[in-house]
Write a protein that binds this DNA or RNA. Structure first.
Lengths: 336, 336
DNA sequence: AAGCATTTTGCAACCGGTTGCAATAATCCG
DNA sequence: CGGATTATTGCAACCGGTTGCAAAATGCTT
């Protein structure tokens, strides 16, 4: 069936070790035998079995990529960058979809059965304990898009959600809004809590500004739309900081449907800056998460931890910035 | 380090074979030894190494999932369904991102090194030769979202693009549009060509309707917007059949920006029915691809081919249907 | 209790590679 | 050219499992 080491060795008239060595970086083979082996390998169409070699080397170059965000368009970009980044380093992503799974143990067991070299948990909604379960099992792990912690148990890469909340508040203040609100994602998500913390923290210094809070049931278009529809029936704020871009677009839809317009009647600022946010018929003012940097750092960390497993857990947070578009009125208008 | 078969065997006081058999479906083990083994395994936290066993069984339960569509939101749904569907059958997707790759040989080699049991090529833009390269290499393969062929070399699952083109034309005719156009994706993509064929085929029976054709440079928002902007400066049609939903949204953006409105001034019908199409502020009339069925069938086929490798190549096409929303005027208005 | 059919079990070889070690070959040096 | 040094090579054991086969144990029948 498949052509093996032995076949090549026979045809080249050398030992199996010789063949193995020609395909092993930095092993000792004479140019002569190498040539013979390569010729035979080419003729037979041989390429070494990565799984068999992993048995002795202990490395599979497989990386578990675990996520539960298969409904947020941002994550298509995330998967794109992760797969490309891993491939560029000769690593292979084994994708795990956690959509209706909550217990980490199944994933841990499965990924250990496949001897993954490391795991990347890419999710802002999974609890820290999820990634920690991998660490517990002795698998190098980093939690991407995770929550900041001063004494982390695992590597965490992401953004400073508290700072983002503050940044959003400041953006609204600078534009002269006097009645603002936080329209968060699911209340229990730690990212939501952190952002609320920053948001209200910044506003505490501005007692003249009226603030309120509510939560959408999910980071989704529908949830954003439903919640904004509800808010509009009461006494809406002048501007909202929404949990993420998808939620924001749902809110925009509700605003439009109510015959109001943005930013004239109500301002919206989102978070993520997914590709779609720049589409001219959406044109969402939002806070940009530098996902390429986050993903690059995540890969660096997991690779680093594979090389030095005892490496100290580390948190890397990347700065975000407001991307000015069309759903918030310009700054100068609101100058006091 | 990791706990192995031998450790369990020692602790349970049985042979290694006994342990192996307890973890092998349908092997002969007495209840007594099974109990001993399970106890020991539990105490040690043992779970069998899938890769080691694949060496002898010849099955890895790894499936290569190959795609180059990491910028079309539809494919997030596609990846979600594929990963879930594969997981449900105990298979593991090894994701391969082909974004800037055109030569299949690298992917073939890599996936063979990992002894994948099968490969799913999920792409509407890759040529048939890509999937065929896997077949050539003896790897069971199915091309999802591929092109119809009467004598296929590999399994193909998708939609009948010619029929979709026809369906789009009929939808426009039924709504009384007298001047219609095809706004395709990249001209060289076979899906584009097939749809154009169906579109113009249906319109041939209606010589009273004026038709024209143009192509966007990619299946992307920007490309759709650019092309529609160009079209609007000339003598635009009353309605357009766009290559896909993303392209359509780009076109909508251009129409809106030109101060025109949809469907009053210009009608648009897309293709795919990705989740976003139903968002009320997009509300795109489109042709629905039944992606869940396509993906289910793809998985069935790849699994079937793994079991019977000599299975005859097969093409499965699923019917599409028009999803009535807000970017085409209603049917009755246009009744002759 | 003996005789026979069935299960259960362990041995050992094997899956496709890697690698330490000792033997062999090549190279260098005076 | 001989001896010392270094590079190359093959053997054999091993990685963590599976499996055919024959021996041992069990169950059944009379």
């Amino acid at each position: 069936m498949a052509v093996t080491l032995r076949d090549v060795a026979d045809r080249a008239g050398v030992s199996r070790s010789a063949v193995s060595r020609t395909f092993t970086e930095g092993a000792s083979v004479s140019p002569k035998t190498r040539a013979k082996v390569e010729k035979a390998a080419l003729e037979l169409g041989y390429s070494p079995n990565a799984l068999a070699s992993s048995l002795t080397t202990g490395r599979t170059k497989l990386i578990g990529l675990v996520s539960n965000n298969f409904h947020n368009p941002l994550f298509l970009e995330v998967f794109d960058l992760f797969t490309r980044g891993l491939q560029d380093r000769g690593l292979r992503p084994l994708l795990v979809n956690l959509s209706n799974e909550t217990d980490p143990q199944n994933s841990v067991r499965m990924l250990r059965q496949y001897s993954v070299d490391g795991v990347i948990v890419a999710s802002s909604t999974l609890p820290p304990s999820f990634a920690e379960a991998f660490k517990q099992a002795g698998v190098p792990v980093v939690h991407s898009f995770g929550r900041f912690s001063t004494s982390p148990n695992v590597h965490v890469v992401g953004i400073d959600n508290v700072a983002c909340g503050r940044m959003a508040a400041e953006a609204l203040i600078a534009r002269g809004y006097r009645k603002v609100a936080f329209l968060g994602g699911p209340e229990k998500a730690t990212s939501t809590q952190d952002r609320a913390l920053g948001f209200f923290g910044a506003l505490r210094e501005h007692p003249e500004i009226e603030v309120s809070i509510s939560y959408a049931s999910a980071y989704s278009f529908d949830a954003g739309r439903v919640e904004m529809t509800r808010l509009l029936m009461q006494d809406p704020a002048q501007a909202y900081f929404c949990g993420d871009d998808v939620l924001s677009i749902g809110a925009l839809s509700a605003i439009e449907e109510a015959g109001l317009s943005c930013p004239e009647d109500i301002g919206i600022i989102g978070l993520n800056d997914m590709d779609m946010a720049r589409w001219q018929n959406i044109d969402l003012t939002t806070i940009r998460q530098p996902i390429a940097e986050i993903i690059g750092a995540s890969i660096d960390l997991v690779v680093g931890t594979i090389e030095r497993p005892d490496r100290h857990p580390e948190t890397r947070l990347f700065p975000c910035r407001v991307v000015e578009r069309g759903t918030l009125r310009p700054v100068h208008q609101g100058a006091a």
